[in-house]
């Protein structure tokens, strides 16, 4: 009898443990996966931003010949991309700095971070608007203003 009870207890414990594991393990893995995805998401967005930005920079710096149409295409892309990365800093990506250059200050000074993000979006819009009918000479200050919004945020919130 004694033996039967202990076997029963053992079996029950094992069952509960297994069930608990079954439920908790995937949940935990998901949380990790989501954070990881959020980091990948914002990094992917920044990488696209840099790619488009870099192409315009080449024209602004005279490394690539200025082509109004191509510049406008890039500026338009940048305008749309300017919204994308910031979703990766809230939700599952909130507070996540692992495998990332994001500094914890982002979430400590959330309002300031958002102000800087807004400044970037505005500058990107301004640049896209100007690219519709401006010369390289007129575009340059707008491009540099956008570049400065990148830098102002990096100085505070991106690891050196």
């Amino acid at each position: 009898m004694m033996r039967f009870t202990s076997i029963l207890t053992l079996a029950a414990t094992a069952a509960i443990t297994l069930t608990a594991l079954q439920f908790s393990a995937p949940a935990k893995a998901d949380a990790f996966a989501e954070a990881d995805e959020a980091v990948k998401y914002r990094q992917g967005a920044f990488s696209l931003i840099r790619e488009n930005f870099g192409h315009m920079a080449g024209m602004v710096r005279g490394e690539i010949e200025f082509d109004a149409e191509s510049f406008q295409k890039r500026a338009e892309a940048l305008k749309h991309l300017s919204y994308i990365p910031f979703d990766g800093f809230s939700g599952a990506g909130a507070g996540i700095t692992d495998g990332s250059d994001a500094l914890p200050g982002i979430w400590e000074n959330w309002d300031d971070f958002n102000d800087k993000a807004e400044a970037f979006k505005e500058a990107a819009h301004e640049l896209a608007r100007a690219s519709e009918d401006a010369s390289l000479r007129e575009l340059r200050p707008k491009f540099m203003a956008a570049a400065r919004t990148c830098q102002q945020c990096h100085d505070e919130y991106r690891a050196d």
Partner: peptide
């Protein structure tokens, strides 16, 4: 400096 990247341009 020759190996650096400013992440902007």
């Amino acid at each position: 400096g020759l190996f650096s990247d400013d992440a902007i341009f």
